[in-house]
C-alpha cells in the first residue's frame, strides 16, 4: 500500500516509515499540514495516516477542509489522545478510522484493509500465483476460481508468502509478522497455522513447501 504519513515528530515518523517499509509498503512523510497538502496535490495514496496535533494546526480541521475540497482519500487518524470523544470527533470530521499511539502495526494493517474494503476499494490488487488468486483487501482467496474461506491469521500468513513467492520465510520471520511483537511465540504455533493454511489451499497447484531447517516458501507443485 502507498501511505502518506503526516507526523511532526521526526523520530517517530522515521521509525514508522521504516517499519511499514519492512512490510512492503511505500511511504511519504509530511511533517506538517502544509507539506501534507503539497503531497496530496501531486500524488495519490491508498491511505493517509494523520496525526492530529501538528505544529501548523489541528488535524481535524485539516481533514474537514480536505473533505470540503472534495478530496476523499482514505484517512486513518493516528493520535496520542486516547479519549473516545476525540475519536468520535475525528470520525465526524471525515476520518475513516482511528488508531491510537503507540501503533500496533498488525492492527493498523487490518484497519487499513477494512477501510479500503468498506470503500469498495480497488480489486486491482488481486495477486496471482499458479492457480491461486488472492485479494488481500477483500480477504478473498480462490483456488482455480473456487473461493475458499480463510480466517484472519491464515489470510495474513498467505499474504506473507505472496509478498515474496519462492522466497524462504523462517518461522521467526513469520512469527514476527503474524503476532504482536511482545508475544513470545513457540514455533509450534507457526506450524499449526501453516498446517491450517495448507488444508485451506488443498487441491491447488500452489503449495506451502517446508524447506528443512530454513522455513517455508510458497511454490508451485512441480
Amino acid at each position: 500500500m502507498r501511505f502518506l504519513l503526516v507526523e511532526d515528530n521526526q523520530n517517530l515518523a522515521e521509525a514508522v516509515s521504516t517499519r511499514l517499509a519492512m512490510d512492503g509498503h511505500a511511504i511519504d512523510m509530511a511533517g506538517s499540514l502544509g507539506e501534507a497538502q503539497d503531497y496530496l496535490a501531486y500524488s495519490s495514496y491508498d491511505i493517509v495516516l494523520l496525526d492530529l496535533t501538528l505544529p501548523d494546526g489541528d488535524g481535524r480541521r485539516f481533514l474537514g477542509q480536505c473533505r470540503a475540497a472534495g478530496n476523499d482519500v482514505p484517512v486513518i487518524a493516528v493520535t496520542a489522545q486516547s479519549d473516545v470523544s476525540s475519536r468520535v470527533e475525528v470520525l465526524d470530521a471525515g476520518a475513516d478510522d482511528y488508531i491510537s499511539k503507540p501503533v500496533n502495526f498488525a492492527e493498523l494493517e487490518a484497519r487499513c484493509r477494512a477501510v479500503l474494503r468498506r470503500r469498495g476499494g480497488a480489486s486491482h490488487n488481486v495477486q496471482q500465483f499458479a492457480d491461486l488468486e488472492f485479494d488481500p483487501l477483500r480477504a478473498e482467496v480462490k483456488v482455480a476460481g473456487e473461493p475458499r474461506e480463510l480466517r484472519n491469521r491464515e489470510m495474513r500468513l498467505l499474504e506473507i508468502f505472496f509478498s515474496g513467492p519462492d522466497r524462504i520465510y523462517s518461522k521467526v520471520q513469520i512469527g514476527d509478522r503474524l503476532f504482536s511483537s511482545a508475544e513470545e511465540i513457540s514455533e509450534n504455533v507457526i506450524e499449526v497455522y501453516v498446517a491450517r493454511l495448507r488444508k485451506k489451499l488443498d487441491g491447488s497447484r500452489a503449495q506451502i513447501e517446508t524447506v528443512r531447517g530454513l522455513g517455508y516458501r510458497l511454490s508451485e507443485r512441480g
Binding site: N9, L12, M22
Partner: peptide, 23 residues
C-alpha cells in the same frame, strides 16, 4: 490531553524502533 500526547508519542517511537530491531 497534553500529558497523553507527551507520554505516548515517545513511547510510540520506542515501540516502533524496538520492533524494527526485533525484525
Amino acid at each position: 490531553a497534553e500529558a497523553a500526547h507527551h507520554i505516548r508519542t515517545p513511547l510510540s517511537t520506542v515501540k516502533t524502533e524496538t520492533e524494527i530491531a526485533l525484525r
